[in-house]
Design a binder for these strands. Structure first.
Lengths: 208, 208
DNA sequence: GTCTATAACCCGATAGAC
DNA sequence: GTCTATCGGGTTATAGAC
């Protein structure tokens, strides 16, 4: 069946791009892994870049079901959801002996050419991630100081995840990852404490 | 002169690996840019990876003179030195229209193979950076709470720089970079405030 | 140490029958 | 849509004269 062949190609491309990178994955690698033939692949994807674009669209479309839902299963506390997401990347690192973490981040630094369509999809993937985390911080409502920018805090969270994954991959251990996430925990805890104090002051004010 | 040829080759390799990446830079590119001939390059560096190792050794050896000294010129405040270093990466992004930032980070995510010697040098580069920042935080002495781990804070700082550069490159703008660095500023400011409060308490205690 | 020429290989992509 | 065979070009690296 045609759809099956296409799915197999895209699935193996997703896997191989994540494991070996885009440049280091040859079309021959994808053909061998998927069991498809050259003619079939080029029937669906005229160029290798078209296949990359499809892979990035899949990541984008799958962020809720493939990434967030499994990470957030059984959780309701919005702040815990943020750290559960970061724990999901930690699991990915553990499961691969710190060989890879975030496929989008790896591709983002590998693609050096302008490649506007590729870069736009990488950016959209980042934006989807940031928006999901931002929703958590918004749900945390009064637990955070009202004057801190939730969008900026979400960007900061992505920044830390990507930088921490990079170091884990380089050192092949989780020390820098854990230290970085612990620092973010500390920062969020300080924000919560600051919000609580100002609320206490406010309540004090109401009582006078 | 032999040494001159070698220096030209290494210099252009440093530049091209940073701009185009390791895999996307061919030996032919380096030969053309340096004006050297194939025979000369392979006389000094038997394989392309040997050239990469030399490039990484140069980055490591040059961190003080090439990176820190220019960024810290005229500065003495240790906390300001940390943010001046982060500003240096911002300048690099601005100067290249957000095309590249940290060569070590880019190479770290590009190299997917185990490549133990390469990865060891990447790790040493990160460690040198972290130790330099750690020295700043140590010099800040009593301005930070005594119970916070200066080494972990330095790793956190590198994490943020790398993650922020990645997003700047992807979005081709500085919004995520500036937002991330501003958040680190806020975090450090909160640490300084916490240290000051606890010192005040202590002084208060001395007065009773 | 430097030069030129080229080997040996792998890559993305295509042609054309079925 | 699927298959096989292959093209044209770029890659790292080498050979051997100077």
């Amino acid at each position: 069946m045609a759809q099956e062949t296409k799915e197999k190609i895209v699935g193996e491309a997703m896997r191989l791009f994540a494991v070996k990178g885009y440049g280091a994955t040859s079309i021959a690698d994808i053909l061998q892994a998927s069991g498809a033939n050259s003619g079939s692949l080029y029937y669906f994807f005229p160029t290798k870049q078209d296949l990359l674009l499809e892979v990035l669209r899949r990541y984008q479309a799958g962020i809720a079901d493939m990434l967030l839902a499994p990470a957030w299963e059984g959780l309701s506390d919005p702040i815990e959801k943020v750290f559960a997401l970061l724990a999901a990347y930690r699991h990915m690192l553990v499961a691969t002996d710190c060989t890879y973490g975030c496929p989008i981040g790896s591709l983002a630094l590998e693609i050096h050419e302008p490649d506007p369509p590729v870069r736009a999809l990488l950016a959209e993937n980042f934006e989807g991630w940031v928006l999901a985390v931002e929703a958590c911080y918004r749900d945390a409502a009064a637990r955070l100081p009202p004057d801190i920018d939730r969008h900026a805090l979400s960007i900061f969270t992505l920044t830390i995840m990507e930088g921490a994954v990079m170091q884990a991959r380089t050192h092949r251990n989780l020390l820098a990852y854990d230290a970085s996430i612990a620092m973010l925990r500390d920062h969020v805890a300080r924000l919560e404490a600051a919000a609580k104090n100002s609320t206490d002051y406010q309540n004090q004010g109401d009582l006078t």
